[in-house]
Design a protein around this nucleic acid. Structure first.
Length: 740
DNA sequence: GCAAGGTC
């Protein structure tokens, strides 16, 4: 039997459909759908799900407290299955196979994924014969060609990928553990470190530092509003766009009189090239500019892809491969919403698409694979589908053409100017109307015209700090620096959010992020730089070319990591202190109005959270907090209460902007009162057990703490009582609410 | 409970 292994189920299904003389038979093997047909031999095509095994340390290393972080450096690295069903199917089919063809994706990880599968088969069928096919798109032409010319598996390339896995695991796991333990952040709140996430976080922190160090510089702008013959008003600006000296600006202001003379009019044409085909990064960038987060854009793209509406969304390629019949692909849209656009393109004799800078073998650029109707998709899906369709069309369209107008004016010897632009020929912008620049129209003017000045204005401005990274921009920067891959960059960013290293979009780092990056930069600089990835890429290339053994690269890397831990060992206390200081800063939400101490996120003995005053026990000011989720203190300050707004993040959920915790509490109390008013008047409880939520057992506890009447419960300090009884502050406050 | 890389 001939067994063909593809990287994913859908690829297996499509490859089978192309190779089979008749419709292939769908057969369940160990719970997996496989595709069987008779060619020269019985042939079975099955799909994996990317990597089906994972590297890890043996179980004995799992205990963070007992195993020292640095022991992970030289620990065994074992391979464990992550997709048991697929592994079982592989074994079952592998045993029967006489010949195996690896047909995974045409890139380094694909080679490794193929070898992982082969190794599983070899365990049950050591003598099996195997080869490898390469294709860049699943079209009949490419698949037929690939299978007519099978090649050998590139084991060196797979080794290169394997070395990356080992290095990522060993560095990431050991440093994550070390930092988390050093900072006392165990459990869900651990501090993660990794080859890709840490340099990315460092970029964000560096940008924030730049912003903090930025000193705004004042400058002035001068405008005059002119009236043309027909009475139309328009603005002109002094040719010195930024006056750094107020006096100079004022001098110009003072001499502006009643008239302006047109001193020159220059008309010219400007062309605007159509965009290049979408790869993942470009797609996320475009989606991001119309309001999608990177992770959301990819999630939706994935569902459009699995429904067959767009091609594979994870690709580096920006050049359509020749094997795709592009005209046929446009013809798909002769019906439906995009009819007029498709027809206009199809009217061209020749369809020449643009080409991006990156041409790779992995997959084609993202293009619309089939026609979708608006009611088949939800709103979010439709907008992204439309984006892909329009982008695809735009890559075949002509340049856009603008007429630009530069007009200069003389006002009492000072030069002023106005620029206009008008779209003459929309070209590709008709197909792809996103972020189109607006026309800036100027009245018809000729040299020598004299216009009256209606008003003049001097604007006070100041230079702005560099902006924070938005997700789209960050992903582009990561790509430029070689950080992460098309399939992982958005995940890495999501990870930074879920670790509470960043919040908001554009991304803003927390103090914890500052502390982590600073500690790493000082003692483990390698992991904070994108150079680590470039170095790794070089090493992987050498492994792939057969110029060095994987073992040598790993030894070298482990040696470097030992040096890092030697640094750690010499500075254990310093690192721990500076990390803890940073973590503490993230808990400060402002200054207590009652006593001037810090208001902080605190934890009661019983583990419940609240906002308490650092001046406790002298000051009892406190505010409640939600039970679960990480509290993030933002830089926004409440105008009324002078404390910072907070956000609550829960894994897998949207962050909850709680706002000012004091306003929130006041609001909450108000709704509580309203609720109470709506409900029939509940009499004030007489006995303590009449208070909702207090039973006999609790009443006994309260009595032991000296609270036995309703009045006493109402008067008692909630935090004090919580300390003595172990009952949460929140609960006690609720009872007190119920009494009052 | 640790990474990054696939895929769903």
């Amino acid at each position: 039997m001939h067994l063909i292994i593809a990287e994913k189920h859908i690829a297996a299904k499509r490859i089978a459909a192309i190779l089979a003389p008749k419709k292939p038979k769908q057969v369940r093997v160990s719970g997996m759908d496989t595709y069987e047909f008779k060619d020269e031999d019985r042939t079975v095509v099955m799909g994996l799900s990317g990597h089906i095994v994972q590297l890890d340390f043996p179980k004995a290393y799992n205990n963070w407290q007992k195993v020292e972080s640095k022991e992970l450096i030289d620990a065994d690295v074992i391979t464990t299955p992550t997709h048991v069903k697929i592994v079982n199917a592989l074994k079952k089919l592998g045993k029967e196979a006489t010949h195996v063809t690896i047909a995974t994706d045409y890139d380094r990880e694909g080679e490794l994924i193929g070898v992982e599968a082969l190794e599983i088969i070899k365990k049950v069928n050591p003598e099996v014969d195997f080869d490898r096919v390469f294709y860049s798109a699943i079209t009949k032409k490419e698949i037929d060609d690939a299978f007519a010319n099978p090649a050998a598996i590139d084991f060196n390339l797979a080794d290169a990928g394997h070395s990356r896995q080992v290095i990522d695991l060993v560095w990431g796991a050991s440093l994550t553990r070390y930092l988390s333990i050093s900072a006392g952040r165990l459990g869900k709140l651990f501090l993660s470190v990794g080859r890709v996430q840490s340099p990315t976080l460092a970029l964000i922190v560096d940008k924030e530092k730049e912003r903090q160090a930025f000193i705004p510089k004042p400058y002035w702008e001068i405008y005059a509003t002119l009236r043309d013959k027909s009475g139309e008003l328009f603005n002109v600006q002094h040719k010195t766009q930024k006056f750094w000296d107020r006096g100079e600006a004022q001098k110009v202001m003072d001499i502006i009189g009643d008239n302006a003379t047109v001193s020159s009019v220059v008309r010219s044409k400007k062309k605007d090239k159509p965009p290049t085909p979408f790869n993942t990064t470009e797609f996320i960038g475009a989606a991001s500019s119309i309001g999608y987060s990177a992770a959301n854009a990819m999630r939706i793209a994935e569902s459009l892809y699995t429904s067959g509406f767009i091609s594979y969304p994870r690709t580096d390629n920006t050049v359509y491969p020749e094997s795709i019949d592009l005209r046929a692909q446009i013809e798909v849209f002769k019906k439906g919403t995009f009819k007029e656009y498709a027809e206009k393109l199809l009217a061209k004799d020749k369809l020449v698409p643009t080409r991006g800078k990156k041409e790779t073998t992995d997959h084609p650029p993202i293009y619309p694979a089939s026609l979708a109707k608006k009611n088949e998709l939800n709103d979010q899906e439709w907008k992204l589908y439309e984006l892909v369709v329009r982008r695809f069309f735009a890559t075949f369209a002509e340049e856009a053409e603008w007429e630009t107008l530069k007009v200069r004016f003389d006002i009492e010897g000072e030069e002023f100017k106005a620029n206009g632009a008008r779209l003459l020929h929309a070209g590709w912008r008709w197909y792809y109307p996103y972020n189109a620049p607006q026309d800036r129209l100027l009245p018809a003017l000729e040299e020598g015209d004299v216009l009256s000045i209606k008003s003049k204005e001097m604007l006070d401005k100041e230079t702005q700090p560099p902006g924070r990274y938005g997700q789209g921009r960050l992903i582009k920067l990561m790509e430029e620096l070689g950080l992460g891959t098309k399939a992982t960059r958005h995940d890495i960013i999501s990870k930074l959010y879920s670790r509470a290293y960043v919040h908001g979009n554009p991304l803003q780092p927390t103090k914890t992020a500052f502390a982590v990056v600073e500690a790493l930069e000082k003692y483990a600089p390698t992991i904070t730089k994108h150079d680590m990835t470039s170095q790794l890429e070089e090493d992987m290339d050498r492994i792939a070319e057969g110029n060095i053994q994987e073992e040598n690269v790993l030894n070298e890397s482990r040696k470097m990591l030992h040096d890092v831990f030697a640094e750690f060992d010499e500075n254990t206390e310093k690192i721990s202190e500076s990390l803890r200081a940073g973590l503490r800063e993230d808990k400060v939400i402002g200054i207590c109005k009652e006593c001037g101490s810090k208001l902080m996120v605190r934890r009661s003995k019983r583990g419940s959270r609240f906002i308490g005053c650092d001046g406790y026990p002298d000051c009892n000011f406190s505010l409640p907090l939600p039970k679960s989720g990480q509290v993030i203190v933002t830089d926004k300050v409440c105008e009324e209460h002078g404390i910072n707004h907070i956000k609550i993040i829960n894994p897998g959920k949207r962050p909850w902007d709680l706002g000012c915790p004091q306003c929130n509490f006041i609001e909450w109390k108000k709704t509580q009162e309203e609720e109470k008013r709506k409900q029939p008047e509940t009499p004030r409880p007489e006995k303590i057990t009449d208070v909702p939520g207090i039973g006999k057992v609790t009443a006994k506890k309260l009595e032991d703490a000296g609270v036995s009447t309703v009045d006493e419960l109402e008067e008692v300090n909630a935090r004090e009582l919580s300390k003595n009884t172990g009952i949460s502050v929140g609960k006690i406050m609720k009872w007190q609410e119920a009494i009052a």
